[in-house]
Design a protein around this nucleic acid. Structure first.
Length: 343
DNA sequence: ATAAATGATTCTAA
DNA sequence: TTAGAATCATTTAT
């Protein structure tokens, strides 16, 4: 009841009425002499106050009558104003939406991955860049790449359909609530501003759902990326020639099998692989050789023989025909010319 | 089908 | 940063 009297007090004040004490029958009598508007409002307020005491049918009828009253719009706006000041101002202030950094992050990532961005161009470009960064060979990278793109498109499609579903549900629900509030605003003070606020609340709720969707989409993309960009998954053995070059260097520098940066570059060029692949190879070779020297003994002997034969061939300068019994594979275009025969 | 080989990655420590 | 070690995921050999 306290609220009601507060509202009524505010109403009369704002409405330019001098007598706030409408509950007092005396004041009503006094108002009757003050002119039509005051008397109307006093009437209306009394009817509103009494409406809860009436039966449902009576109340319904009364509601209708009040609704059609010519003072209704003015009263309504004033009541709304009061409600605004009393109820809504209490919690309405701190609800300014800060640009959520979390959702910004997700948005940025989805955009970067080409999920939420422009249709085909961005996605394929991103995928191509990723594939290129992974250092895949150009032939199979296009195959892998199309596969990657297909999966990414699938994710994007799911993402968009889900997003659309949520947006539709959100707008449906918003509409429903708005209609409800508009309907109710005929009988209780609900300002457009309040409806707006309610809509904002609904949108916040739905955007948190959207954030979950974005998060799971991001996860899916990350998994996809790790699957396709992990070079372990599309490993190809080096060709025989490259392996020979590497082994030759390794076994001819067995006492110190750590090629310098320049040596690595040269080996990389000779083998048609990258410098980091050369580094990987030597890293693996060293540890595996050390772990089981016995197992590599045969290989070591073979390459020792091979370098000796090559050296002999170089010194003999091809004046004689090569013996067909050489253990290495035929057609070795660039014999190892390592000038530093350290061992 | 299973084991071995192999290139790549990840982690730790220097 | 780099080497070493462990491990992964794939290819090749059995």
């Amino acid at each position: 009841m306290d609220d009601q009297t507060r509202m009524l007090t505010g109403l009369t004040g704002l409405g330019g009425l001098s007598q706030p004490d409408v509950g007092d029958p005396d004041s009503v009598r006094k108002q009757q002499s003050l002119g039509q508007p005051q008397q109307d409002i006093g009437d209306i307020l009394q009817q509103i106050m009494a409406i809860t005491d009436e039966s449902l049918d009576e109340a319904q009828a009364r509601k209708h009558a009040l609704n059609c009253h010519r003072m209704k719009p003015a009263l309504f706006s004033v009541l709304c104003e009061i409600k605004e000041k009393t109820v809504l101002s209490i919690r309405g202030v701190q609800e300014e939406d800060p640009p959520d950094p979390q959702i910004m992050r997700l948005d940025n990532m989805l955009l970067a991955e080409g999920v939420s961005g422009p249709e085909k161009g961005g996605g394929s470009a991103a995928a191509a860049a990723a594939a290129a960064a992974a250092g895949g060979s150009p032939t199979d990278s296009s195959i892998e790449h199309s596969d990657y793109r297909a999966k990414l498109a699938q994710i994007r499609q799911i993402y968009h359909s889900e997003l659309e579903k949520y947006e539709q549900a959100c707008s449906e629900f918003t509409n429903h609530v708005m209609n409800l509030l508009r309907e109710q605003s005929r009988t209780r003070p609900i300002s457009p501003k309040e409806i707006e606020r309610m809509v904002a609340i609904i949108h916040r709720k739905f955007s948190s759902i959207q954030m979950q969707l974005k998060q799971s989409t991001c996860e899916a993309v990350m998994i996809l990326r790790s699957r396709f960009l992990d070079a372990r998954r599309k490993r190809r053995n080096f060709n025989k020639q490259a392996t020979e070059v590497l082994n030759e260097y390794f076994y001819s520098h067995l006492s110190n099998p750590y090629p310098s940066e320049e040596a690595k570059e040269e080996l990389a060029k000779k083998c048609g692989i990258t410098v980091s692949q050369v580094s990987n190879w030597f890293g693996n070779k060293r540890i595996r050789y050390k772990k089981n020297i016995g197992k590599f003994q045969e290989e070591a002997n073979l390459y020792a023989v091979k370098t000796a034969v090559d050296a002999a061939n170089v010194s003999a300068q091809a004046s004689q025909a090569n013996s067909p019994a050489t253990p290495n594979s035929g057609g070795y275009p660039a014999p190892c010319y390592t000038p530093d025969g350290r061992l």
